[in-house]
Design a protein around this nucleic acid. Sequence first.
DNA 1: CGCCCAACTTACCAAACGGTAACCAATATT
DNA 2: AATATTGGTTACCGTTTGGTAAGTTGGGCG
Lengths: 131, 131
Amino acid sequence: MIENNSGKFIPTFCPIRHVLDRFGDKWSILVVELLSHKGRMRFSEIATSIGDISQKMLTVTLRSLEADGLISRAFYPEIPPRVEYELTELGKSLIPPIKNLMDWGQAHLETILDNRKRYEEEKEKKKISAT
Amino acid sequence: MIENNSGKFIPTFCPIRHVLDRFGDKWSILVVELLSHKGRMRFSEIATSIGDISQKMLTVTLRSLEADGLISRAFYPEIPPRVEYELTELGKSLIPPIKNLMDWGQAHLETILDNRKRYEEEKEKKKISAT
DNA sequence: CGCCCAACTTACCAAACGGTAACCAATATT
DNA sequence: AATATTGGTTACCGTTTGGTAAGTTGGGCG
C-alpha cells in the first residue's frame, strides 16, 4: 500500500488506481487542458477562464499539480504580486492521452446522452406497467 | 446547461466537463478496464477481481455504465440467478484512450511519487527554517 | 423447517469534497 | 485614513460519495 497526498491508501501494484486517484477530482485535468492551450497563465487568468472555480479550489488544484511536478509556479514579488503557472515537460507529456480521452468524449457525448435518456424512459415505462 | 444522471448541471458547451463528470468517479474506468481484459464477466467475478469494491457501488457503477450504453447486461433467470456483463461496441471504443492514459500513468507514476515526496520535504524544511 | 445461492435494493452513516466568507501581506491610489 | 490590488490561507459548513449491514427473491437441499 502507498499513501497519496491526501492521506488515502491505495494498492501499490495498480497504476490505474493511482491515475484515477490523481485525476478523479473536479479540476486537475481541466487546468492541465487549459494550460496546454494557453501556455503560461496567471492565477486570476486561470480563474476567469474556468469561470466557476472557487479561489480555494484553484489554489488546492494548482498546489497538487505543482507537487506532482506537472506544472511550475513562478512567483514575482511585485506589488501587487504576480504568479504565473505553466506545464512542465512532464505536464506536457500528459496532453496527448488527455486529448485522446477528450476527443472520444466529443465524438460520443451525444450518443451517451441519448442512451442515458432512453434508459431513463425504459425505466419509467417499467415502473408504470408494474402498477 | 445540461442535467446529468445524478441531477447535477454542467456547462453544455464543454465536452471535457462531461467526460470528467462521467469518469471522475472511483470505479467506472476500473470496471471498463477489467471488462476489456476479461470479456464477459459475472457480477461476482467483477467484485472479486476488484477486491475492495462494495456490492452497492458495483451495482451503481454497472447501472450507470449500462445506462450510458458502455456495457450490456444479460440476465439469466436461473436459480440461483446469473448476470453477465460485457462491453458494447461503444464501450470497446473507449479502450484505446483509457489505455493511453494508463500507459502514461505506468510510465510516470514513480516520477510523480518522487516529485510529491520531494515537494513535501521542501515544505517541511521551510516550516522548520521559519521557526 | 430453515438455510443456502447470486444479485441485487434499501436505510443509515461516516468521510471526503468543495463552496462561502473572512482574513492576510505590502504598496499604490484616492 | 480608507480602499484597492493579487494571490493566497483558514474556519466553517453543506453536499456528495461511498461503505456497512440488513432485507429481498425463489427454488434447491439437508
